[in-house]
């Protein structure tokens, strides 16, 4: 009854595996330890520590950066669920700082102001796993090629408008369906067209799904939004401003968790949606100027 194997850490299996444990769950944006505890009590599968929620980043303007390490340490001390944190696109030193703090996952996020307009972080070299945003299959597979162990569709963060999240999830799922029916020579041409590594295009075609866990994000504000994203094929939901910018965060958080679990049970979604109070105010994406869209960040 003794083990006889060497111990390997930080493998792809272990990095992707944590995302698999989050499936069917909700990852909630929090800016304080108190919010993190509310999220955990409501049934969050993980929390995302950041300096300001996307709605405030949008309202305040200026440069959005990694959160204060002190805040991240406070949040880590407050909860037992995994703690994720955001770094700027391409800011590998922010990523190293977050890794040194012992965060469980890093989100290299378009919600923060990009630090590099050409390069993303070379994520394979890190011990900590990364999640990245995508709008289509090519972008997702480029990020996985760089070492991302989880992806999420970008949506349009801080708006409370789910339309972009739907657009991106539909696009990704449709492209995954298409490649399953392609011949090998068509896959070569398609990989070139979507600027994705060929081996990952072939892997996704063979699996019939994204090679890593794929959550939805960016504009999910209600239990019905959360269930909609699951119905479109998402593995789980990130909810940012939608919870702590609403009238009753604890109740809304619980409702979104329940709707994510029971996404096929519309009667239950109706039940948890009753008397939830004010949702976040929201900004219609159609009213945004192109330069105000965060989803265009990332290359």
């Amino acid at each position: 009854m003794s083990s006889n194997g060497a111990v390997s850490k930080n493998t792809e299996t272990v990095k992707r595996g944590l995302a698999q444990m989050l499936k069917g769950g909700v990852i909630m944006d929090v800016v304080t330890a108190e919010q993190a505890s509310i999220a955990e009590d409501a049934g969050a599968a993980a929390v995302m520590a950041l300096e300001r929620v996307p709605a405030d980043i949008r309202a305040d303007g200026g440069v959005a950066r990694m959160a204060d390490p002190e805040k991240i340490l406070e949040i880590q001390a407050a909860v037992t669920i995994p703690v994720m944190a955001k770094c700027r696109i391409g800011h590998f030193v922010e990523a190293e700082v977050l890794q040194s703090l012992g965060v469980d996952y890093i989100d290299e996020s378009e919600v923060l102001t990009p630090a590099d307009e050409e390069h993303h972080v070379a994520k394979s070299g890190f011990d900590v796993p990364f999640v990245c945003g995508c709008r289509n299959l090519g972008e997702a597979l480029r990020r996985i090629g760089e070492g991302a162990a989880m992806v999420r569709t970008k949506g349009e963060a801080g708006t409370g408008d789910v339309v972009e999240a739907v657009r991106h999830m539909r696009r990704v799922m449709a492209e995954l369906r298409q490649i399953q029916h392609m011949r090998p020579d068509e896959l070569y041409a398609y990989a070139k067209e979507i600027q994705a590594p060929l081996n990952l295009v072939e892997e996704a075609a063979e699996l019939g799904r994204m090679p890593v866990v794929n959550f939805a994000a960016g504009g999910i504000a209600t239990p019905a939004d959360a269930a909609l994203m699951m119905r479109l094929g998402s593995d789980g939901n990130f909810v940012g401003s939608g919870i702590f910018k609403s009238g009753d965060p604890a109740q809304r958080a619980r409702a979104i968790v329940e709707a994510t679990t029971n996404f096929e049970d519309s009667a239950l979604v109706a039940e948890v949606s009753r008397n939830l109070g004010e949702p976040m105010v929201g900004i219609a994406n159609s009213s945004l100027q192109p330069e105000e869209m965060l989803a265009g960040r990332g290359w």
């Binding site: 083990s3 111990v7 850490k9 930080n10 272990v14 996952y105 011990d127 796993p129």
Partner: peptide, 18 residues
């Protein structure tokens, strides 16, 4: 719970199981 530490302490190994 979380007896080995944070995510970067997660690991793979081989076990004998009765």
């Amino acid at each position: 719970r979380n007896a080995f530490g944070r995510q970067t302490d997660s690991f793979e190994t081989d076990l004998e199981i009765e």
